[in-house]
């Protein structure tokens, strides 16, 4: 009966995982940060940041990430100051009671491209580009979905599908039509300083890893602590099992 119970438990847990959209897939070789010991690839994160800054940031905010968090990607304090200072933010009021512009500081969250949702819609033909801070957690399929979405443009739509004005065919997006123009339509939209060739797939792969980090910045710490907790529990379980065996020896 114990076996049946454990089978049932597995079943119950497997249920909510079911997803419906056209099967998203990851890049060849999968994701380095997945798996029990998987950690983020710092090089990919830095390249992904570049893609985000130079492509996605034209439309998408990243409100939950602050420039100071980039220290986790391996940037020094000065580098972070420089990255932050590329953008300007409104601050104030000052002693004169006036609002003023200043360069962003490491403690500021990533500066959003639009002042508000309405402005973002106006600039995007009525569609709202979502904040990307949690996008990997906020979609079924996570990394694979966003990767497939980014690389899934450019195919011919089925004959019976009418693509509305301002929309683009993408078989991975629910409904098949998305208001986002293909953001990674050509190779070499960015130039990587580490010599990696910026193909469409490479840029998609890098930015997805960057976004995975943005959604779960503590994933590495989490797994590290997890391994210690598991080892501790294993030992503890062993000790209590032995003690219990010893104690119950004469009872059975």
């Amino acid at each position: 009966m114990r076996l049946i119970l454990s089978l049932l438990a597995t079943l119950v847990f497997a249920l909510p995982a079911a997803a419906k959209e056209m099967h998203p897939h990851g890049p060849e070789g999968g994701w380095k940060h997945k798996g029990v010991f998987g950690s983020y690839d710092r090089g990919a994160l830095q390249r992904g940041l570049l893609v985000y800054k130079q492509v996605c940031a034209a439309c998408h905010a990243l409100n939950l990430v602050a420039y100071r968090n980039l220290a986790m990607l391996g940037y020094s304090e000065d580098e972070i100051k420089t990255i932050a200072a590329e953008k300007r933010v409104k601050d104030g009021p000052n002693d004169q009671g006036e609002m003023f512009d200043r360069p962003a500081r490491p403690s500021d969250p990533f500066v959003a491209p639009f002042a508000n949702d309405q402005a973002a819609r106006v600039a995007n033909g009525g569609a709202l580009p979502p904040d990307l801070s949690l996008i990997i957690k906020a979609r079924h399929g996570g990394e694979n979905y966003v990767y497939s979405l980014l690389t899934g443009f450019g195919e011919t739509p089925p004959a019976d599908m009418k693509i509305l004005p301002g929309m683009n065919y993408n078989p991975y997006f629910p409904g098949g039509q998305i208001a986002m123009p293909p953001p990674l339509a050509a190779d070499d939209l960015v130039s990587y300083s580490d010599g990696t060739k910026a193909t469409k797939e490479q840029m998609a792969k890098d930015v997805v890893q960057f976004l995975a980090w943005a959604a779960e910045p503590h994933m590495e710490q989490r797994k590290r602590i997890g391994i210690r907790v598991m080892l501790f529990l294993l030992v503890l379980t062993g000790v209590f099992y032995a003690a219990k065996r010893q104690l119950w020896r004469d009872v059975h």
Binding site: F13, P16, A17, V36, P130, L134, K137, A138, R139, H140, G142, A215, R222, K223, I225, G226, I227, V229, M230
Partner: peptide, 15 residues
């Protein structure tokens, strides 16, 4: 907790 903290949740609750 440590390896699949969101597996039992729903992605929409991250929106």
């Amino acid at each position: 907790i440590f390896w699949m903290p969101n597996a039992l949740g729903h992605p929409d609750n991250s929106i």
